[in-house]
Design a protein around this nucleic acid. Sequence first.
RNA 1: GGGUCAGUAGCUCAGUGGUAGAGCAUCCGGCUGUUAACCGGACGGUCGUAGGUUCAAAUCCUACCUGGCCCGCCA
Length: 502
Amino acid sequence: MTEPFVRVEALPAKVGDTVTVNGWLYNARSGKGLYFLELRDGSGIVQVVVNEEQVGAEAFEAAGSLTQESAFRVVGEVKADDRQRGGVEVQAQSVEVLALAEPYPITPKDHGVEFLMDRRHLWLRSQRQWAAMRVRNRIITAIHAYFQGEGYIQMDAPILTGNAVEGTSTLFELDYFGEPAYLTQSGQLHGEAMAMAHGKIYTFGPTFRAEKSRTRRHLTEFWMIEPEMAFYDLAMNMEVAEELLVAILAAVTADCRDELETLGRDVGKLEAAMATPFPRLSYTEAVELLTGDATQTLLDAEQEGLEDEKHALETERDENRARYGQAKKGEKRRIDAREIAINVRLDEIAEGLRNIPSWKASARDFEWGSDFGASDETVLTRHFQTPVIVHRYPAAVKAFYMKRDPEDDRLALGMDVLAPEGYGEIVGGGERATDLQFLRDQVEAHGLPESAFDWYFDLRKYGSVPHAGFGLGLERTVAYVCGLSHVRETGPFPRLLGRLHP
RNA sequence: GGGUCAGUAGCUCAGUGGUAGAGCAUCCGGCUGUUAACCGGACGGUCGUAGGUUCAAAUCCUACCUGGCCCGCCA
C-alpha cells in the first residue's frame, strides 16, 4: 500500500523533502510568531515548527487552536536538527485541523494508577504505554519466528473446557447450554494431543484464572505460549526454553532500542541475561543455595546498599530544602518535583528494608519439600544475571501429569524458569508422564474425575512416547523485558480483580 | 483470605483542632527556537460516605466504600 502521507518513523530518510504528515497533538509550546507542535502519529513523535511569517495568518491561527490530542495534518519540509528526537523536525508550510479535541484528561504530568486504568483506552496513546506495546509486539513476533524456524506447528487449544485441568486453580465457570463449563486455565493437555499429531506444536492464546490475587504479577486473563514436543525429555525441554528466551531478548535488544530507552530500561541487564547456558539448579541445589551463607551475605549487602542510598537521598533532600527559600519560582518547582521523586524512592527503600529481614528468615528456614514463595524466587535469582532454571521439584507441589524422576521417586521432572530482577516464574513445564496406570492413579489421588480424562488417557493407549513442554507467561515476560513494575501495563486492556472496563 | 498505607480542585499533592492551599490542566495576555518551555492573570472545592466527640473537624473516634503495596495462590 502506497500511502499519500509519510509516517514519522520514515522522516529521517526524507530530509529536504516536502511531505504530508497526519497525527495528533501530543504537546505544544509557543513563542511570539512561533508554535512548536509535537505531532504523534503512532509510529513516533516529531516536532512541527509553525512560523507565522511562513504559513500565513490562517494556518498560524489553526496551529494555535489545536488542543492536546486534536487531529491535524501538516505539509512541510523535513529538516535535520540534532536537538530533536530522531534528528529531524518538520518546518510547516500549511496546517489543517482535522478534529479539535475536547480537554484531554491525561496531561504530560503525573497521574495515579486508578485514574489511568479508568482511561486505559486513552492511556495507550502515552509514550511509555506505546513503547511497552511495541516491545510486546516484538516479543510475540520473536516467539512465532523462533518456533516456526524450528519446525513447530502453531495450533490453538480450546478456550471453553468441560473440566478443571489440574484441579488446583480457581476457574471462571460458565453455563454452556445447561452444562457447566470453564474458561481454560491451560492448553497443556490438548497441546499433548496435538503434539502426538504433529510432533512439535505450540499454542498461543488466552488463559484464565479466577484467583483473587492482587499483586504485580497477576492477571485474571493472560496469554500463554505452550510448546509441546514428542520425543523430548526434560533436558531438551530446558534447552528449548533457554533458546526461546534468548531469541526474545536478542530480538528486543536489537530492534527496540528507542522503546527501551523510553521505558528507562537498563539494556545492559538484558544483554547480560542472554549469556548461555542459563544456570540449571535442581530443586535440592536451589534449596541449598537458598538456605546457605551466600544468600544471607547477599541480602546483607543489599540491605547495606539500600541504607547507603537512603542516606544519600535524605542528604540531597535536606540540601534542597535549605536552598528552597532563596530559590526562584522555576527552581522551586524543580525542587518540589525532586522531593516527590525522592519520597517515592524512599518509600520503596523503606519497603525493601522492611522486607529483607523476612526474606532472610524465609530463605534460611526454608524446608525441603515446600514450594518456593515469591521472595524465595527473588532471592534465588539475585545470585545470577541470567534467568535461572530450577528442575526436579518434589512431586507433591507439581501437577499430576508430571513424569517422576527415575532416580528419585519423590521428585517430578518439572522445571521452572525464574526471570532476573525479581520478576519471578515466567516459564513452568516439564516432562510428561507416559504410563497409563500411573496417570490413572494420579488422577484418583488428586481427586479428579476420571471420566473427564478419558481422551487424555487415549494418548497413552495409542503410541505413548516421551514428551515434554512448558508454558511461557507472555505478560510476565513483557514486564521483565520492559522493566515494568506491574503486569497491568503489559497488555492493551488488562483484566484484573475489580477491573473489567474499559 | 490476611497485613498495611491512602482517599482534599479535572490531575498530582501540601495542609494533623481555629478564614480551603500550591503546581499542572483549561481560558486570557506576554515572549521569534521551545524541549514536561517560561512569565503574568483568571477560573476551579459536598476535603470518599454515614455517624460520633468538640464552642469549633479536612484534621480526633467508629463503621462502611474504593484503591495502592505486600503475603498466600499462580504464569
